[in-house]
Design a protein around this nucleic acid. Structure first.
Lengths: 193, 193
DNA sequence: ATTGGCTGTTAATCTATATTAAGAAATAAA
DNA sequence: TTTATTTCTTAATATAGATTAACAGCCAAT
């Protein structure tokens, strides 16, 4: 029986069952309680998580103490401090747990070993990273070209499922406005319709 | 003698001279005059450029007609409509020529053929995309957490060379402010010091 | 039941940045 | 050189969104 990880990988490359074993064995399993900070700036976070259950988020805290959310990770998604994971330098982000979670952990050094052993996995990560890059480019342009309202509507379309299990101030942080303004904006939207 | 492209690739993977030939032959060469629009939204832009000479930029135009610059590409850099290149769908960006340029063109289908033929090239593009992703993530956070002034100072540090050969309104567009505000901001910075 | 801590709302005020406009300076074209 | 076009600056005004503050609702812990 295929687990979520292999199911996920097989969306982009097809693996033999030996390859599946090799890959799966490179991951370690872990569980964390809600509110656990699993990565913080300065950590040597040379690994990435694949989420099996629960929700995590990655974010920074600026000089005023304001949180800016970079990403949410629900089951089937990856989350890491990409900077630390890819460069081997200390982390720049926080990653914490919003709902009790189970994750699979892949160390960078194991990933690199696997890339040579199973080139199809390197292909998978290339495609994953490519898709991630496109999404991030679009987000940059959206932040420059769209109003908060328009960004919110895009968010609704893109993540309709995640909305109800998420305090709305987190959505505000993700789209880049304060919770107060977000609240006002939402009631404006309701009044309009 | 190695050209700029092979030099660039060899920063991340080492190629035999046969591999170098295979790769180099997959590219087509082209030259464009300044102001040429080489990609526009709707185009089937299933290729990427490697810049040998000159400067290009990628951008969108919003409903008000305002330009938002996503990237500049100088010699040694890549530029494409990543969305069209990677998904095979119509382009969403403009790419145009800021200074007469020579580029090498790689079609997506040739890239995919090469990835199988020369796995090291797939590795190179994986790494390239990874680095690009990190930079884009940081840019998202910078736009949310930093003031325009701070973003400008980061830009100065990151691209000190490109600044003098670039109309400053393009820098304004890249960091996400109007040229008028950018001008004011710059004179404020001077007064401070 | 009561306390305390999150979360969401509303409203007043404030600020960074946008918009509009008009002239100056620089570049390119003729 | 003169003209035209693009770029830069300055200043007045406008606005999207931030800040501050006060309160209400909700849920978990005591």
């Amino acid at each position: 029986m295929k687990n979520l990880l292999l199911q996920n990988i097989s969306k982009h490359v097809s693996l033999t069952s030996e390859e599946e074993d090799i890959i799966f064995n490179a991951f370690e399993k872990a569980s964390f309680k809600a509110k656990t900070i699993v990565i913080k700036p300065g950590d040597e976070a040379h690994f990435t998580y694949f989420v099996l259950k629960g929700i995590l988020r990655s974010y920074t805290i600026d000089d005023n103490g304001t949180i800016h959310i970079l990403s949410f990770a629900t089951p089937g998604w990856w989350v890491a401090d990409m900077y630390s994971y890819l460069t081997g330098k200390p982390a720049v982000l926080y990653v914490d747990v919003m709902e009790d979670c189970d994750v699979l952990i892949l160390q960078r050094c194991d990933a690199e070993r696997l890339f040579t052993e199973v080139p199809k996995l390197e292909r998978f990560f290339r495609i994953l990273t490519e898709n991630n890059l496109i999404a991030n480019q679009q987000r940059i342009l959206d932040k420059m070209a769209l109003t908060a309202e328009e960004r919110y509507e895009k968010f609704l379309q893109k993540y309709p499922d995640i909305i109800n299990c998420l305090p709305q101030k987190y959505i505000a942080s993700f789209i880049g406005v304060t919770p107060e303004f977000f609240s006002k904006m939402k009631s404006n939207l309701l009044r309009k319709k």
